[in-house]
Design a protein around this nucleic acid. Structure first.
Lengths: 206, 206
DNA sequence: GTCTATAGGTGGATAGAC
DNA sequence: GTCTATCCACCTATAGAC
């Protein structure tokens, strides 16, 4: 259990919340301790007490983000719903992030990748790996149940899906249009879900 | 003809070349005039002679990038090749950028979007619009020729394709694996190209 | 066009009082 | 844990000599 060395205090959590928002909107090089300081009414020096360096703060951000993400994936996985529904709930996570005018934390950090310290780099790819792995399981499950149709390894299809959703977020956020993302996500999933079967009711309710 | 107010000098071109690389690798907030200065052996003050502000330099970067991109699209459009081949050549442009360890300029700026001056923001979405528009034409042409298969408006399919390729670049660059991008691009196109027809020879040569 | 010099501000980070 | 005070490197940008 690689849990954090010390459980984050209430203040540390507030710092992480603000920093997370700032990274997701402005990028890792687009915000400063002064921004967090202003948002929380706490001096920069105090921030350094909780997170000695910006690199350490960044690492804590990714770890917490991935942990939250994996918890949500766990809930979807445990839910009594079909693979197509699981896929739609997965895409819904992205849409919810975008609705807050944010980019996926790790998608944003992927853009900043070349400027990140080694530990952060490794955590970013680890996030993508975990997403691909989870998705591959859902895709394989759905293919066995004949509710999905795609060729080749499920992991390859999963990899494309992660990239497509990240790209859809990236572009849609520039237009400030969540609908643009939802349209693309729907189309991306439609390409996987077997035509004329379960997953989405013909057009009755919802 | 909205050509630049003044034709860029040889020095201005060298500045743009270096700045372009820096933005594509480090992001708009991840480089400084000092970086360009060091790369070219020219003082920061001289850079300001050619581009008064960083915002102006950024705007010039996008305009030049989009112009070059549109020229390449024009060449592909004029080439005597099938719609599937045009699509593959389009994806090849992205792969070539990634091979230089770079992200698409406008994909990178889409990440930095919230921190950009208005004029740069507008130019970024304009780039995506142009790409979607060009792709939609190719897709519609291919659908009429029965070499593509997809449902709904070609512009919607084009929009997803742009986003998927941008996302594939974003993620693949983190792994430093061009092959990862090529695999995803191939899969994205395979979903559009009608199975068992032209576009890709069964597996003979190439 | 390019330089030196500098302004005026902000970056991350630390020392030490409370 | 939070503060004041401070360091120094770096940032974008300008003035003015050459």
């Amino acid at each position: 259990m690689p849990s954090p060395a010390s459980p984050p205090s209430a203040t540390a959590k507030r710092i992480l919340d603000v920093a997370e928002r700032l990274v997701q909107t402005h990028g890792f090089n687009g915000f400063s301790y002064a921004d967090i300081s202003a948002a929380l009414g706490i001096t920069k020096a105090s921030l350094h007490y909780h997170f000695r360096t910006k690199a350490q703060l960044g690492l804590s951000l990714i770890r917490r983000y991935q942990q939250n993400f994996l918890e949500m994936l766990g809930e979807i996985g445990a839910a009594r719903c079909s693979p197509p529904q699981k896929l739609r709930r997965y895409a819904q996570i992205y849409a919810d992030v975008l609705r807050k005018d944010r980019m996926c934390l790790c998608g944003m950090l992927a853009a900043d990748y070349a400027t990140l310290p080694k530990a952060m780099k490794d955590s970013v790819t680890s996030f993508f790996d975990a997403n691909e792995s989870w998705l591959a399981n859902v895709l394989e499950e759905g293919r066995r149940a004949k509710s999905f149709h795609f060729e080749g390894p499920a992991s390859d299809e999963a990899r494309l899906l992660v990239a497509s959703l990240e790209g859809a977020m990236l572009v849609a956020r520039s237009y400030g249009e969540v609908a643009r993302f939802e349209s693309m996500a729907e189309r991306a999933l439609t390409g996987i879900v077997s035509t004329g079967t379960a997953g989405r009711p013909a057009r009755t309710q919802e």
